[in-house]
Nucleic acid binder design. Structure first.
Lengths: 238, 238
DNA sequence: CGAACCCTTGATACGCTTCAACAAGAGTGG
DNA sequence: CCACTCTTGTTGAAGCGTATCAAGGGTTCG
């Protein structure tokens, strides 16, 4: 069911290709030129991934950039046995791994589909040639990598300096600003959110309850209403 | 006292410029071509920074890439007051910030000299034009950014999945492999190492003692001898 | 010599995890 | 329809890991 839109993005349809806003999530604004879009479309391959299936494994050779077009993929490491320690949720459309192919050519994490997902792969050797011809594209990739660095820097800072409550407040506020509205709809299981915050599901449950009884939020299943933004911000702010 | 070598790197001396190995730390191997080196030398500016002095501040406009040539600079955030929460030590030669200029143009961290340092700045507008002409340099920058992503990914993983003892063991082993030898010489104060491991100096002291009484290491002031690599590796390994 | 650091050591407190039990849906098959 | 199981989230009690606070020792330096 995802394939029609996926293939729309993958191959440039012959006439009047409706602009797919998912390009923007990957390459930023302003929009790619039509020439750039078509050149990329010639390179990339997309594939569907079923729930629980592996997208790539740690140690595997990484010869392409990987993005999630639709669905959700979890990044983490598979510890001994089959347990999978989830560390990060990537919700399409977004880059899943732009760094491994450039640096060393080996994945350092495992990726596993949390929902049925459409994954896009962009071979590095083709991309490299394309970048040589398109300085504009080159700069976009640079920016994408830089944003990844900034995002990870923020994550590291939060882990080092904030306790679980602060991290939760930070996360709630960052999700609110994405879809501007009074409340946040969870797109993931609570245990996945907990993993992303580096806490246990039990602690997350307790934190949500404590924030709720403090009157800062209102939790109803997978929908959280933020009642007191100011208080949340002062909580989140170091 | 650092200035002669710094200026050697900054301006291309007219004849037989001895290759400065510090370029390799920034741009990787294989070596830059002479043309690339000279083009970069025309762009960059270097400056000396005294101990405790700020290199850049959070929120400031970031229009250039920043590297540490010599000395050490700490990355972190200045909390209210004058306290400085250290998060990362950058020991020259190494990049200090390659992402801020590309992404948003604003520093997200503070940087403060921990030792007398020589700092190198590479304005982005000039670099951008240079990258348009040199695909090779462009790829090097891409790799540098990608390595930053990988390094931060590793840090994040360690913070999420390992306890303090595991992080310390990981750090000891990673430092050993840099300068191949039986023992590790600390280039920083122990409190700075503690900050980098996201623990307090007290906990670091206790951990070192416990590893020492377990016979895994031998601590003598600022020099740590690794006595049992296998045991350390099994500790560090998730 | 005292002052300022840095590191260490001990006692205590707190945050979070772990383990175990339980409740509430969702899917399944009789 | 019911009983059954599987999954997910919740709640409580106990325990571990690390922070915090306070005190003391070793250097270096004026």
């Amino acid at each position: 069911m995802d394939t029609p839109t996926a293939s729309l993005l993958a191959r440039s349809s012959t006439r009047s290709p409706a602009w797919d806003p998912r390009w923007d999530a990957l390459f930023g604004l302003p929009r790619l030129s039509e020439a750039e879009r078509q050149a990329l479309a010639l390179l990339l391959r997309s594939r569907a991934v079923a729930v629980g299936e592996s997208v790539f494994r740690r140690g595997q050779a990484s010869l392409q950039l990987v993005a999630v077009l639709e669905g959700a993929v979890g990044l983490g490491v598979a510890t001994q046995g089959q347990a999978f320690h989830l560390e990060r949720n990537i919700h399409g459309p977004a880059w899943l791994d732009i760094s491994s192919a450039w640096a060393g050519g080996m994945f350092v994490q495992d990726a596993q589909a949390l929902q049925t997902a459409t994954v896009l792969e962009l071979p590095l050797d083709g991309l490299r040639q394309l970048l040589g011809r398109c300085p504009d594209l080159c700069e976009r990739m640079m920016c994408a990598l830089a944003h990844a660095v900034q995002s990870l820097t923020g994550t590291t800072h939060d882990l080092m300096a904030k306790d679980a409550q602060k991290r939760l407040a930070t996360w709630l506020l960052s999700r609110r600003s994405e879809a501007s509205g009074g409340d946040v709809a969870l797109k993931e299981r609570k245990r996945e959110l907990a993993a992303q915050l580096a806490i246990t599901p039990e602690t997350l449950s307790r934190l949500l309850r404590s924030l709720m009884s403090a009157g800062l939020i209102e939790v109803k299943g997978y929908s959280i209403k933020l009642l007191n933004l100011g208080a949340l911000q002062s909580l989140a702010h170091d």
